[in-house]
Every structure is written in C-alpha cells, then in structure tokens.
C-alpha cells in the first residue's frame, strides 16, 4: 500500500472526507513511497506534517491516532534507522557534523533536546580534530518499543585521553578545553561510554525519548 493511502485510511476514522482530502493532497513526496519503505527521518517528518495539518483543522491529534498512523505508515512498529558517517579533520567538518546531526533529529526531539544533541556532537567532533587530527563520527537514529534512540559514535586513532577520571569527575581543568567538551557531551547526552588508550579513542553517546512524549509536543 502507498503511504498516502495509509494516511487517508487512518484519518478517515476521525475526520471528515473533505479534511482528509485536503491534508492528503499536500503531503510531501515521501508519501508516494510504499508503506514500510520510509526511514526515521522521512517517517517522522511525514508524521509531524500530518499531525500539524490535523491540529490546524480539528485540534491536536491524540497520541493513539498518531500511534496508529505511525504503525500504518511504517508498516510495523518501527521505521527503518537513519544513519550518517562523517570524517572529521577540521573545524569545517565540525559544522558538517552539526548539520548532519541536526537533520537527523530535527523531526524527532523537541527543540531544546535537538540543540543538546547537536551541541554534544559538536563537542565530540571538535575533540577529534583538535587532539587526534582525524577521526570519524557515526550518527544513528532508530526506534524500538516506542522509544526513539539517537546514537553518536566518535572514534579516532589519536593518543588517547589522559586523566580521564579527573575529567569526568570535573576536577581537571585543562586550558585547552578537552575536558570541558567531554564533560559537556556527557551532561547533554544520557550517558557516555568511553574507551581510550594510546591506540585511539572511541566514545559512544546516546539520547532517547518516548514516542508518546515527543508526539505530545508537536
């Protein structure tokens, strides 16, 4: 089934045919895809679009309607994950990483959380080019059991992070700011897993949100 038709079917249960037609007529092009073919970015973008349209015409849609829509469009309980990998070797790449992160989470988290996520990615990306010279940032958004997860994996083959415990405890104040950025990323995300040594560093950070919470805000 085409996504557009799935949306029409779901909305028909709660809206007059005229309203359904007007919302469906202006859906973005992603709605021409098959149910189950959309990834997190496109899927939630579409979902928010429909929610906004519905709100304008008939008041805020219930979380249940949005859940039904989500499952119908996705063809199951989750959209396919969206991911992006970036190489980081300069401050220009830090901006690219920020932009990529922003695009990935824009339709997912509320604005303040989006800024938190993008800022954390910025801190991790900067640490890569400043202290290791070159490295990689992997960004990923996925969902399962009505929970959306953003994940960032920043890795490099640099000299490793010295005095890690002090940095994480907030007692080490480097003049260059490595500690600040790392601690900052830890505060902004939900937990940071850090593996570091003379062969290099890998940092994993995650931020999650429940479907019911993020859809309530839209």
């Amino acid at each position: 089934m085409v996504v557009r038709d799935a949306v029409a079917e779901a909305l028909a249960a709660v809206m007059t045919p005229l309203l359904v037609r007007s919302i469906v007529a202006t859906l973005p092009s992603s709605s021409e895809g098959e149910v189950g073919s959309l990834d997190m970015m496109a899927g939630y973008d579409l979902l928010r679009y429909v929610a906004d349209g519905a709100r304008i015409f008939s008041g805020p849609p219930s979380v249940d309607l949005l859940t039904t829509l989500h499952d119908l469009i996705g063809g199951s309980q989750s959209f396919r994950p969206s991911a992006q990998v970036l190489t980081v070797t300069s401050d220009h790449d830090v901006i690219a990483a920020q932009d990529a992160a922003r695009r990935l989470v824009r339709a997912l988290f509320k604005p303040t959380d989006c800024v938190r996520v993008v800022t954390a990615v910025s801190e991790l990306a900067r640490n890569i080019y400043m202290y290791a010279g070159t490295g990689e940032v992997r960004l990923n958004v996925s969902e399962a059991d009505r929970t959306i997860t953003f994940q960032v994996i920043a890795s490099d083959r640099g000299p490793g992070i010295a005095r890690l415990e002090e940095i994480l405890a907030g007692t080490y104040h480097s003049r260059s700011g490595l500690g600040r950025g790392l601690l900052g990323a830890k505060t902004l995300l939900e937990g940071l897993e850090i593996q570091t040594g003379p062969q290099g560093t890998t940092i994993k950070g995650v931020k999650q949100a429940r479907f019911a919470d993020i859809m309530r805000v839209s």
């Binding site: 800024v115 938190r116 600040r180």
Partner: peptide, 12 residues
C-alpha cells in the same frame, strides 16, 4: 536563543 542558553548552562 533560549535553547542555546539552556545548553550553555548545562555545559557549566
């Protein structure tokens, strides 16, 4: 911006 201010204070 408010979101930026929030993030900054969380960064300490």
């Amino acid at each position: 911006q408010p979101e930026v201010a929030t993030t900054l204070v969380e960064l300490g």
